[in-house]
Design a protein around this nucleic acid. Structure first.
Lengths: 226, 226
DNA sequence: CGCGGCTTTGATGTTCATCAAGTAAAGTGG
DNA sequence: CCACTTTACTTGATGAACATCAAAGCCGCG
């Protein structure tokens, strides 16, 4: 069997709504793409032909805004980055996706997925739920950032990686200060200053790329009290 | 016939994918709710039982964030406010909707819509497209705001109402300065100051609630150059 | 080695929130 | 209807939050 779906998260998500004898067909049309850290998986402006699902790794969604600045929309890990944003509403990507860590993506023909929506109600329902959840997350996250200030925004990012990505208070920060700045919409220098302040206040510990949250409560307070 | 679907936008959107002999059934289960300016259509925290579509009027989507502040997520006019945001991904609303102008909403049982998704592929596809488009708009809009500053943000709002809502450079501003502030994430005083500055610079003209954009180009430049 | 990108800190000025005080407008109860 | 209260709006003054400029150290890489 070409497609080892047992090891693929996609199975749990979608294949539960597809009859076993149908799976084979979709599996064979599926292909995997490996991208190394730094490489692009999706380029802004490209035509949307595929339906892409992140199987392994860590990516960032970002866009070039009108004035040429780069803005990071969201970080995506397996499960919460399924092709979303404009896949069914536009014909061109209005954002890029690139790998932060080496990643593997599952790629389907978009037309096949659309066919599946048309013919398989359970699949359509499932997909709607997933898309809905993903959009909600982005929206609420961005809204949160919008009403926080520098300190709260930086605290948010650090806690995001600790809680959502690494599920640990000690981890290797996968992104640069510059990327944090591009995500929270503040200047690089001020991001650095806040991280330094957190370090001096013994809220976090930094050695190289490694980061340890020493005082989770205080960091959460900084995040919540803007 | 109870349901005068000819006059309802929903028809063009959804009913194109439903067979004529099926329409009758859904029409009869549909009900209309009128809300006067200032009244709530949806309350944050309520259970999601309905699928709601704005037929006439103007509404605002807003939420109370963790620290108790009110934040306006988006303004919605007929067509671009279909129940979205968490309708299929959560069981409770995490935002409120209230009428800015007197409005009329079409209400369906959510369970019926879900049933329709399961059994009618074309409908599901159509709904996915609409939801996708709506989410994209909110996301891109919020991201735009996030990287603009005071002047650019205020210019954005004014141009939004001129272009998207009223399709004219002269209109009656339907929202208060406070609501602008809650939408763009800045203080009321500064919103007022910017509007005054625009007025003094002859970019806009203000008499009471009425607003006229005198110099569209300059206002657009303010919006685009942050 | 030298170059470019990332990081860091300090100094400076701009942008912004906040406080204060006052005016106008709109609802409320007698 | 008028006095009363509340809400929206407005302006100025002040300090806090933030961007920007500048300079220097630190890598990794050709």
């Amino acid at each position: 069997m070409i497609c080892q779906c047992e090891s693929c998260h996609l199975k749990t998500l979608f294949y539960s709504s597809i009859r076993l004898d149908e799976i084979e067909g979709y599996c064979s049309s599926r292909r995997e793409i490996g991208v190394k850290a730094g490489e692009d998986l999706i380029k802004q402006g490209e035509e949307i032909r595929d339906f892409i699902y992140l199987k392994e790794g860590l990516v960032k969604l970002y866009r070039k805004s009108d004035n040429g600045q780069i803005q990071i929309i969201r970080f995506g890990k397996p499960f919460d980055f399924v092709s979303l944003l404009s896949v069914f509403s536009d014909d061109k990507y209005n954002y890029s996706v690139s790998a932060i860590e080496d990643s593997v993506a599952c790629v389907f023909d978009l037309s096949e997925i659309k066919q599946l929506i048309l013919t398989n109600g359970a699949f359509a329902m499932h997909l709607i739920e997933i898309q809905n959840r993903a959009s909600d997350l982005i929206i609420m996250n961005t809204l949160d950032l919008l009403q926080k200030r520098l300190y709260g925004r930086v605290a948010s990012v650090l806690l995001y990686f600790a809680i959502e990505i690494y599920k640990s208070d000690e981890f290797e920060l996968p992104i640069s200060r510059k990327e944090i700045a591009q995500y929270i919409g503040m200047s690089i220098e001020n991001v650095i200053r806040v991280i330094s302040a957190f370090r001096k206040d013994k809220i976090i510990q930094v050695y190289g790329k490694n980061l340890a949250i020493l005082d989770r409560e205080r960091l959460e307070r900084m995040r919540d009290l803007s």
